[in-house]
């Protein structure tokens, strides 16, 4: 069980939206974590590496200052590996993930992003349903 946190989640979303707008206003770039990670992996570092560094440092600093936050990763190790592989291949072919399609793409009313968002939300929900309610967990 995890508690329903509408207000902190709304505020967190607002911060994500702010980062999305700032990256477009300053760097002229879509805030798609898939695209940014792919750029770093294929040799274009610069602002991308700086962005990822900041994205890691902030939670580190926040938990250091305010104490641990809820974190629970229920999947067994081999399944985490497998899920990473699937996600990596999927976001490459799909051209984006939750941030790139789900937030940036939908914010600029891209039809492709709307379709991608519906696809990954439905397939994630179906996967969770199958794991938890059909086979009774991993």
């Amino acid at each position: 069980m995890t508690g329903f946190t509408p207000w902190t989640s709304l505020a967190g979303g607002g911060l994500i939206g702010l980062a999305v707008v700032l990256l477009m206003a300053l760097h002229g770039r879509i805030l798609g974590v898939t695209g940014i990670v792919t750029g770093v992996l294929t040799g274009s570092r610069g602002w991308r590496l700086a962005f990822l560094t900041g994205a890691v440092l902030a939670p580190m600093g926040l938990t250091f200052a305010f104490g641990a936050v809820g974190f629970h990763s229920p999947a067994p190790w081999p399944w985490i590996l497998f899920s990473g592989l699937l996600a990596g291949i999927g976001v490459s072919f799909g051209g984006g993930c939750t941030s790139g399609h789900g937030i940036c793409g939908n914010a600029r009313l891209s039809k492709r992003s709307a379709v991608a968002t519906i696809c990954f939300l439905l397939s994630a929900a179906a996967t969770v349903y199958a794991i938890r309610h059909l086979i009774g967990g991993l």
């Binding site: 899920s83 399609h101 968002t117 939300l121 397939s123 929900a125």
Partner: peptide, 18 residues
Amino acid sequence: GGASLFGIGWGIAGFCPG
């Protein structure tokens, strides 16, 4: 296909890139 595959990966362990 790509988006659906990503969703499966997301649903298995609860991690997405962002």
